[in-house]
C-alpha cells in the first residue's frame, strides 16, 4: 500500500520538479529586487532626514505587522481595480520583494548602526561626502555584518513563496496540492514536498550558521 502510493507519487516527479523550478525562480527574483530595495530602505532609515525615515518606518511596520497572505491578496485582488492585471507569478514577485525589502531594510539599518561611529568620523575627517562615506567605508562593513541575516532572509523568502500557491501559482506546494488530489496520501506527498524544500533550504541554513559562527570570532 505504502509502496504503491510512493510509486504513484514518483510518477508525478516532473510536476514536482517544475514546482521546484518555480519556487526557486520566484524566490530568486524577489530576493534580487528585495535586496536592492532593502538597501535603499536601510540607508533612508539611518539617514539624516527624520521625517522620511519615520514615514518609511511606518510603511515597514505595516508590512511587518500583517500576514503575507493578506499582502498577497491585496496585490492580487486590488491592483487589478487600478487596471493592473497581474499574473500569479508577477503578483507574487511584487508582494514578496516588497515584504523582503521591509525586513531587509531593518536588517541593513541595524548593520549600518553597528558600524562604529569612529569609522564615520574618520571618513568625514578626510573630507568624504555622505555618499562616499556610505559607499567606501560604512556599507562594505555593514554588508559583512548583515550577510548571515540576509541568507536567513532568503530562506524565509523561499518558505513564504509557498503562500503564493494560494493564488494559483504552480510552485512546489501547489504541485503537492495537485498530486494529493490524485494520490490520496498526504503523508507521502507532503513528506516529499517537504524533502524538496529541505534540499533547497538546508544548505542555506547551514551556511548562514557557519557564517554566524565565524562572525562571532573576534575580528580585531
Amino acid at each position: 500500500m505504502l509502496l504503491t502510493h510512493l510509486e504513484r507519487v514518483l510518477n508525478y516527479w516532473p510536476m514536482l520538479l517544475r514546482g521546484v523550478g518555480t519556487t526557486v525562480g520566484i524566490s530568486l527574483a524577489s530576493l534580487l529586487i528585495g535586496v536592492a530595495l532593502g538597501f535603499a530602505f536601510g540607508i533612508i532609515r539611518t539617514g539624516s532626514n527624520r521625517w522620511l525615515s519615520r514615514a518609511l518606518g511606518l510603511y515597514i511596520d505595516i508590512f511587518r505587522g500583517t500576514p503575507f497572505l493578506v499582502q498577497l491578496f491585496m496585490v492580487f485582488f486590488i491592483l487589478p481595480s487600478f487596471g493592473l492585471e497581474l499574473s500569479a507569478f508577477t503578483a507574487g514577485v511584487v508582494a514578496m520583494s516588497n515584504m523582503a525589502a521591509c525586513f531587509i531594510g531593518e536588517i541593513v539599518a541595524s548593520g549600518i548602526r553597528a558600524v562604529p561611529a569612529g569609522q564615520t568620523e574618520a571618513a568625514m575627517a578626510t573630507g568624504m561626502s555622505r555618499a562616499q562615506q556610505l559607499r567606501l567605508v560604512i556599507l562594505p562593513q555593514a554588508v559583512r555584518i548583515v550577510t548571515p541575516a540576509l541568507v536567513g532572509q532568503f530562506v524565509l523568502l523561499i518558505k513564504d513563496s509557498s503562500v503564493v500557491s494560494a493564488i494559483g501559482l504552480f510552485d512546489l506546494t501547489r504541485s503537492g496540492w495537485i498530486i494529493v488530489q490524485n494520490v490520496p496520501n498526504g503523508l507521502i506527498v507532503f513528506g516529499l514536498v517537504g524533502l524538496c524544500y529541505l534540499v533547497i533550504c538546508y544548505p542555506l541554513i547551514f551556511s548562514a550558521r557557519r557564517m554566524e559562527r565565524r562572525a562571532q570570532a573576534p575580528v580585531l
Binding site: P116, G118, Q119, E121, A122, A123, M124, A125, T126, G127, M128, S129, V137, P140, Q141, R144, V219, L220
Partner: peptide
C-alpha cells in the same frame, strides 16, 4: 566643510582605521 577637512588631518585616539 569638505574643503576644510581636506586641509585638516585628524588622528584619533582609537585609530579608526577601516578594517576592510
Amino acid at each position: 566643510m569638505r574643503e576644510l577637512r581636506m586641509e585638516v588631518g585628524f588622528v584619533f585616539q582609537s585609530f579608526n582605521l577601516y578594517p576592510h
